[in-house]
Design a protein around this nucleic acid. Structure first.
Lengths: 218, 218
DNA sequence: GTCTATAATCGGATAGAC
DNA sequence: GTCTATCCGATTATAGAC
């Protein structure tokens, strides 16, 4: 007999549907019933496999975020072992894993938008697990960026990381989205690799900008 | 007798509470009942003064967005009449009005976060009115930025505007927010003026970055 | 592990008295 | 303009049969 995975994977289908719908409408904008309808499973199954709506959301995020953040740290480790990396290299190590999932034909495209959405969701929503995941990565990259731009005060590095993260999130949210209404279709948001290269260049230049006059540091 | 405004302004209190709650939890994350509880008004009043939940959301946004976008265009007009403005000047004309409402003690702080949230809400949510508001402004500033950076392909200008808008939104979302959990408190997000100066410098440098090799243009 | 059935609550919206 | 009362559909979650 099979080891229990003979069924066309209810659990996985729930995760896939939830990912797509959460990405589109946000956490509060999606009901469990919308998910079960999309996944063609029973309502009770969602409570059986995951504990609650919030736990399901966590599972959706972690499935993809964990590999992304692991890859980010691996790339950064590899860079630093080869000497002092450039700003562009560090930024690529941070940005590329997030962008590249967009190339994954298996729902990566939709997850890319979900990550973008994550930043605007209620803080208390993404659980301690996720917050912790992000914390470690941000700390490591903050140190790396600081080393690559030693003339910048630490608070300045953090501000620019915040700008970069915002640009990343917004770019990811826009990927595959219909932006014609705003841009007249001149922005090809399906060009994921191009968006990555552009964002790296944009952010690297931003990090190299001089410290504005008159701002205060902590 | 009074002209009808003798009451401590039910209509206004609804708007204020709605603004604060929408900013915190997003459109779908807030119920009308939560709003009336916060505003201490009756449920029916919300349907009387505004037609529906969506119409209320529109009203909340427009109350502050309309002046912001008007000021943006006025500032840009003034700049262009004095000759070819610099990148920094154009960016300031776009960013400053949005940031400055954060200095308004009357709920501006919370609205700043609401604007940031707007980008991640469902597209169909912000009504045609708002979409049109944004469309005009973006078109004008796209032209101005293109003129200030004539060596950039148009699609490149639009990509960088998208990055800038993302950084703006994220910065606004973070203003006054408790970011210690992620940054160890080194980022003083209550320093609105400093955030503005920093973002202008960051984005201007980004706009001056060379076009990445190998990307395609439409 | 999957289902039906249902509990218990909350959602937006409206009617009609005052 | 403001209130009470209520409609009615949708929501999360659970109990219990199979």
């Amino acid at each position: 007999m099979n080891t229990g995975v003979s069924k066309p994977d209810t659990k996985q289908r729930i995760l896939d549907s939830a990912e797509r719908l959460f990405a589109e409408y946000g956490f509060a904008g999606v009901s469990l019933r919308a998910i079960i309808a999309d996944a063609k499973v029973n309502l009770a199954a969602i409570h059986y496999h995951y504990h609650s709506k919030e736990a399901l959301f966590d599972a959706v995020i972690l499935r993809r975020l964990e590999p992304i953040n692991r890859e980010r740290l691996e790339l950064l480790d590899a860079l630093e072992q080869a000497g002092q990396p450039t700003l562009e290299q560090i930024l690529e190590a941070f940005l590329a894993p997030a962008f590249r999932v967009g190339a994954d034909p298996n729902g990566g495209q939709t997850f890319v938008r979900l990550i973008g959405r994550l930043f605007s969701e209620e803080m208390s929503l993404f659980s301690h697990v996720i917050k912790q995941h992000f914390g470690v990565v941000l700390e490591r990259f903050a140190r790396a960026l600081q080393a690559a731009a030693p003339e910048l005060p630490t608070s300045e590095v953090l501000w620019r990381m915040l700008f970069m993260a915002g640009a990343l999130g917004h770019a990811l949210r826009s990927c595959g989205q219909n932006l014609e209404s705003l841009h007249g279709g001149l922005c090809d948001t399906s060009d994921v690799e191009g968006a990555l290269r552009r964002l790296i260049g944009f952010a690297a230049a931003g990090f190299r900008a001089p410290v504005p006059a008159g701002v205060t540091h902590v």
